[in-house]
């Protein structure tokens, strides 16, 4: 449909110029839309209890609080780095497991490859995996498999599978069907059509998405520890609760350094594939 309106813009545009009432209707509608949006903003202001004045009145408190953070206390830096390594390990395994599962699940939720009675249920399942935050899954898995990094791995794995399956299937739905048809014409099996016709086309995107999710999983892995699912989050949570702000600051600086390093690294790798 898009190509039709592109090819003949006059067929769509012409009535707008000729008919002033349509024009007026359109501007009224857009005005109403903005009104609605502003109303929602105002309503949410109340719900979120936004008090900008607090930033001014409590400025003294905040200055004292901020002062406690500096200078950062790196006495236990060895332990911090060890915990940070565990955090990266959690993110790595959570992502790898998710990629392994997202490949078949992504293909099974692509409407150009499977019938609706396959992709609909699979998509809904992935929606559910995606809708619930890693932290919630982390709390559940801590109960199921006990405190520790494994609960974090499982939490990241389930959530990331939901995200990646959706992204993977969107890439698959955007492929060029012609090479696939070329392979089908050789008498190939459906699986072979996917392996040789679909996957080579989507692989750069899939790699890029997976790396991007690895980046964001490192960030997530730093917080799943707060509910006991391993990694540097455990440490962070204890330091904050114990008011050791100088040490908290050291941990936060380490987190920032590692996250930035991995973001840069993965950006670099992604550029090679796209």
């Amino acid at each position: 449909m898009a190509s039709v309106s592109e090819a003949h813009p006059e067929t769509k545009m012409a009535p707008l110029y000729k008919n002033p009432t349509t024009n007026r209707m359109r501007s009224l509608l857009s005005l109403a839309g903005w009104g609605l949006f502003l109303t929602i903003l105002a309503w949410s202001w109340q719900g979120a209890e936004i008090r900008p004045l607090a930033l001014v009145t409590d400025a003294g408190n905040m200055a004292t609080f901020a002062k406690d953070f500096f200078p950062p206390d790196f006495t236990d830096w060895r332990m911090y780095l060890e915990e940070m390594a565990v955090t990266v390990q959690i993110a790595l395994w959570g992502t790898v497991l998710a990629v392994i599962f997202a490949v078949p699940l992504g293909i099974l939720s692509s409407e150009n490859l499977v019938p609706w009675w396959v992709y609909q249920p699979v998509r809904r399942l992935m929606d559910a995996a995606r809708a619930i935050n890693e932290m919630v899954f982390a709390m559940l898995f801590v109960v199921a498999v006990g405190l520790g990094p494994f609960a974090g791995v499982l939490a990241l794995f389930v959530h990331t599978t939901g995200v990646l399956a959706k992204l993977f299937s969107e890439a698959v739905e955007a492929i060029d069907p012609q090479p696939v048809e070329g392979i089908r014409a050789t008498g190939a099996l459906g699986v072979e059509e996917v392996i040789f016709g679909v996957i080579p086309q989507v692989l750069p995107l899939w790699i890029s998405y997976s790396l991007y999710r690895f980046e964001s999983n490192i960030r997530s892995a730093t917080v799943v520890g707060m509910v006991g699912a391993g990694g540097i989050g455990v440490l962070l949570w204890e330091l904050i609760r114990g008011f050791y702000f100088a040490r908290t600051c050291a941990v936060m600086l380490i987190i920032i350094a590692v996250v930035v390093a991995f973001d840069l690294l993965s950006q670099h790798i992604r550029k090679r594939f796209v």
Binding site: Q178, G182, I183, A185, A188, F196, P200
Partner: peptide
Amino acid sequence: GVGMVFQQFNLVDRLQVLTNVMLGALG
């Protein structure tokens, strides 16, 4: 047993030419 050739060639762009040709044997 029925080979097909298309206007847009329908090769898989990112695969090697040789791999594309070997795909003929998938059947």
